[in-house]
Design a protein around this nucleic acid. Structure first.
Length: 203
DNA sequence: CGCCAGGGCCATA
DNA sequence: TATGGCCATGGC
C-alpha cells in the first residue's frame, strides 16, 4: 500500500491527533517536548506525564533549571517515568547541549541530526522526535509501532531505522504537518490495535 | 499476577 | 554488525 493512502486511511478513521502536546507552559514551550522525548524512551506515556507534572510542580521547567538542580533530586522528580537515573543524566546532557547555543531559537535552527546522535542518551528516534516536534524540521520519526504497521500493511521493505525513515521521507510530501500527524496516527492506531487484541484474548 | 511501554548503551563474539 | 543484558516505574 502506498504510504499516502495509508495516511489518509488513518486520518479518516482516527482523526487528527495534533501532536506533540506541550501544555505545561515550560520555558521555552519546546523544552517540554525535548524532556518528553527523553522520558518516553521505552516507557508508557502515562508515566511520562506524571514525571512532566512533577517537573512542573517543582518548577524544573527550563533547560537552565534542569542543569542547576542536583542530580539526585532530579532523579526523584522524574521517578515515575522509570529508568530515572539514566534519564536524569540524559536530561542534563540535553540541557547542556541546548545551552551551547545562544538561545533555543538558535538551537532549533542550527542543531543537526549528526550532533544529536553523537550525544549520549540520544538515539535515532529521540533525535528525530526532537528535530520534528520541537524544532519543526522535516525528519520522519520511526518507532516500534511504525515497524509493526509497515509489516502489517506490507510495505515490503527492510525494517532498519534509516531505511524506513528514508522511505517515509521519500514517499510523502515534505510537509511538517503531515510528518507530525502521520507518526502520531501510527502510534494511536497501534495503541488501539493492542487494546483490541487484548480484549479478544481475555474473552 | 505477568507483560510491556512513544529506546539506547554497552559488553561480548 | 549483531545479538543480549540492562535500566525501572506504573498501566492494564
Amino acid at each position: 500500500m502506498e504510504l499516502m493512502a495509508l495516511y489518509k486511511e488513518l486520518l479518516n478513521n482516527i482523526g487528527s491527533q495534533e501532536w506533540w502536546p506541550a501544555s505545561r507552559n515550560f520555558s521555552p514551550i519546546e523544552w517540554e517536548i525535548c524532556a518528553g522525548a527523553i522520558l518516553t524512551q521505552n516507557t508508557n506515556w502515562k508515566n511520562v506525564e506524571k514525571a512532566l507534572d512533577n517537573l512542573k510542580e517543582n518548577r524544573i521547567d527550563t533547560p537552565q533549571k534542569t542543569l542547576n538542580i542536583k542530580t539526585e533530586l532530579l532523579e526523584q522528580i522524574i521517578r515515575p517515568s522509570g529508568f530515572y537515573k539514566q534519564k536524569a543524566e540524559r536530561l542534563k546532557i540535553l540541557a547542556k547541549l541546548i545551552h551551547r547555543f545562544k538561545n533555543f531559537s538558535e538551537f532549533k535552527k542550527n542543531i543537526t541530526r549528526e550532533v544529536l546522535l553523537e550525544t549520549k542518551g540520544i538515539g535515532p528516534e529521540t533525535a528525530d522526535s526532537i528535530l520534528l516536534y520541537a524544532c519543526n524540521r522535516p525528519f520522519f520519526v520511526i518507532d516500534a509501532y511504525t515497524k509493526r504497521i509497515v509489516k502489517a500493511f506490507g510495505v515490503g521493505i527492510p525494517e532498519d531505522y534509516e531505511t524506513l525513515r528514508k522511505h517515509f521521507e521519500n514517499s510523502i510530501p515534505k510537509d511538517i504537518k503531515i510528518y507530525k500527524e502521520f507518526h502520531a496516527l501510527i502510534v494511536e492506531w497501534s495503541k488501539k490495535e493492542r487494546k483490541q487484541s487484548r480484549k479478544i484474548i481475555n474473552k
